[in-house]
């Protein structure tokens, strides 16, 4: 393996959750694989063809399926995973609402759902239930039946609007 850049391999500077990490990846590496190899294992592998949304991450604030995104194409962008939104001591309002409403069961779809909800709310801060449903339709969940997820996203939207108004 050479250290130079060619058209099949290069060293990328990826900005993930506000930190720049360097990683040498081949051109055909998906962002999903690249992130997991770097230890961002909160990005989940569910189907690798854009059917399930478990691997969703924010790229410049917009949710994408990382399984359908080539790692090279996000160089220079800001990538955010669910761990970049908050942590155990300071949760993001979406994370807090998912916890409080019991919207999490096995939790495997949760990172993707929260990312999709985040992306939807940045486009539409006051979503109707129909908007929430449409925003999450690319995220399959097999445990919850979505009822508590809708409640959690609506609650978080309110909290985020309030926080936005007061700050």
């Amino acid at each position: 393996m050479t250290s130079e850049t060619d058209m099949t391999h290069k060293t990328l500077a990826l900005e993930v959750n506000g930190r720049v990490v360097e990683t040498r990846v081949p051109a055909h590496r998906t962002l999903l694989d690249a992130l997991r190899d770097l230890g961002y294992v909160e990005v989940k592998r569910g189907c690798e063809k854009g059917d399930c949304g478990a691997c969703a991450v924010l790229v410049d604030g917009v949710a994408l399926d990382s399984c359908l995104t080539l790692a090279w194409t996000v160089e220079g962008c800001s990538v955010t995973t669910v761990t970049g939104l908050g942590n155990r001591t300071e949760m993001h309002p979406l994370q807090e609402a998912f916890v409080e409403h019991g919207a999490i069961q096995c939790g495997y779809c949760t990172p993707g759902l929260i990312i999709a909800a985040h992306s939807m709310l940045s486009e539409n801060p006051s979503p109707s239930e129909a908007d929430i449903r449409n925003g999450l339709s690319g995220n399959l969940c097999r445990c919850t039946g979505y009822t508590k997820v809708f409640d959690a996203v609506a609650k978080a939207a309110g909290a985020m609007r309030e926080a936005g108004e007061t700050s």
Partner: peptide
Amino acid sequence: DAVGKAVGK
């Protein structure tokens, strides 16, 4: 188990 799952940990 809820918080760990929500924050991706």
